[in-house]
Computed example of a mutant assay.
Amino acid sequence: MSVLARLVAHPVTERAVLALVVVNAVTLGLETSPSVMARWGGPLHLLDQFILAVFVVEIAARLAVRRLAFFRDPWSVFDFTIVAISLLPATGPLQVLRALRVLRVFRLITLAPSLKRVVGALVGALPGMGSIVLLLLLVLYVFAVMATHLYGVDMPDKFGTLGISLYTLFQLVTLDGWSGEIVKPAMETHPYAWVFFITFILVSSFTVFNLFIGVVVNAMQAEHDLEMSEKTGRPPVSLDDLMQELKRLRAEVQELRGATPAAGGTGPARL
């Protein structure tokens, strides 16, 4: 391994880059204060440029070491994209890109293994979360149509149209002012309106949102099993694998019952 490759992979290098990411996060936050910038704007700008230069050198070194393999690693591409955005000019029509410099803070994800596991689990949970989002949209649509018919005439500001009803029910999902702003005014003209709204809250906020939690927890467990399998060199064991192993053991026990003679007799032994 070359000197450059050893330097790039050295733990001290990773810790130094991690420290610079944290420092850069602090400086970017300080730059939002006019009083701080009025007094320390020059040094903060120089420090920001220095940190960016270090990031560019680090990415260039990793490119030189890994070459095309660098772009086959999603996390490396992520780092490259963030640093490339930071290099874009932040003047004129592209001044909005100045705010995107804070994306450098996301490099903490690639430098901290625990954060990488969390993000990996969230990415793995996206397919399941997509199905749950579709279910939530169906629930919102069905209840919005019902609410528009039931309360649209008496509460046009909340349920006058289907679009307004969808927005109001989404507010109910977040439980923001659900009682004082929505349910109690509806009960002034519809005393039993609470049944409709409580049912919706139970279905959407408590049931569907808990499904989100279940999918994320399952993805986190799968990510943990994969990590443990990489450490031990054994493939991860799923619930289906355990059930198949249990069935195999049960079949072997049945065969032993039939093959072992009973003591003092000719019939099969009873275990």
Results as ranks from 00 to 15, higher is better:
Arg270Leu: 12
Pro235Phe: 06
Pro191Glu: 05
Asp240Gly: 07
Thr189Ile: 03
Lys247Trp: 07
Leu226Gly: 04
Leu134Gln: 07
His190Gln: 12
Phe55Asp: 03
Met220Glu: 09
Thr27Tyr: 02
Asp225Gln: 12
Ala263Asp: 04
Arg101Leu: 10
Phe209Ile: 10
Leu150Trp: 10
Thr27Leu: 13
Leu63Tyr: 01
Leu47Phe: 06
Met37Gln: 10
Leu115His: 05
Leu7Asp: 11
His45Phe: 12
Gly180Val: 13
Val208Glu: 02
Phe212Leu: 10
Ala147His: 14
Val17His: 00
Ile85Asn: 01
Ala84Ser: 11
Ile51Pro: 00
Pro11Met: 12
Ile198Gly: 00
Gly258Gln: 13
Gln171Ile: 08
Val77Gly: 09
Val183Met: 14
Leu136His: 05
Leu4Val: 15
Arg257Lys: 15
Ser205Cys: 08
Leu108Gln: 04
Ala90Glu: 14
Ser179Val: 05
Leu63Ser: 04
Phe78Gln: 08
Tyr141Leu: 15
Leu4Phe: 01
Ile213Asp: 08
Val96Pro: 00
Gly124Leu: 06
Ala262Glu: 13
Asn210Leu: 07
Arg270Glu: 13
Pro235Ser: 15
Arg6Glu: 15
Arg98Met: 11
Ile164Val: 15
Leu162Pro: 00
Glu245Lys: 02
Phe71His: 03
Leu4Thr: 15
Thr161Pro: 06
Ala121Tyr: 01
Val65Ser: 11
Leu134Asp: 08
Gly180Arg: 14
Leu162Met: 15
Pro89Ala: 06
Trp178His: 14
Asp240Met: 08
Pro156Met: 11
Pro113Thr: 05
Val123Met: 07
Leu249Pro: 00
Val216Phe: 09
Ala84Thr: 11
Phe209Asn: 14
Phe197Pro: 09
Arg66Asn: 12
Lys158Phe: 05
Pro74Ile: 09
Met243Phe: 06
Ser165Gln: 13
Gln171Cys: 09
Asn24Ser: 02
Leu97Ser: 09
Asp157Ile: 03
His224Gln: 12
Arg104Ile: 02
Thr168Gln: 15
Pro236Glu: 02
Ala263Pro: 03
Thr91Gln: 13
Val21Ser: 04
Val65Thr: 14
Ile59Thr: 10
Arg257Cys: 07
Ser2His: 09
Val173Trp: 07
Lys184Gly: 02
Pro191Leu: 06
Leu18Glu: 03
Arg72Trp: 04
Val12Asp: 05
Leu239Ser: 13
Val22Asn: 02
Leu137Ile: 02
Leu126Arg: 02
Ser238Asn: 06
Leu88Trp: 01
Ser131Arg: 03
Gly160His: 14
Asp79Val: 03
Val133His: 02
Val119Trp: 01
Phe159Met: 15
Ala147Val: 14
Met243Gln: 12
Glu31Gln: 15
Pro261Met: 11
Asp240Tyr: 03
Gly128Asp: 00
Glu252Leu: 10
Val142Trp: 08
Val217Lys: 15
Thr207Tyr: 07
Pro89Val: 05
Val8Arg: 07
Gly130Trp: 02
Asp73Val: 12
Pro235Val: 14
Tyr141Val: 10
Ala69Glu: 11
Gly180Gln: 13
Arg67Ala: 11
Leu18Asn: 05
Gly120Gln: 05
Leu97Gln: 08
Thr189Ala: 14
Leu94Gln: 04
Met1Cys: 10
Lys158Ser: 12
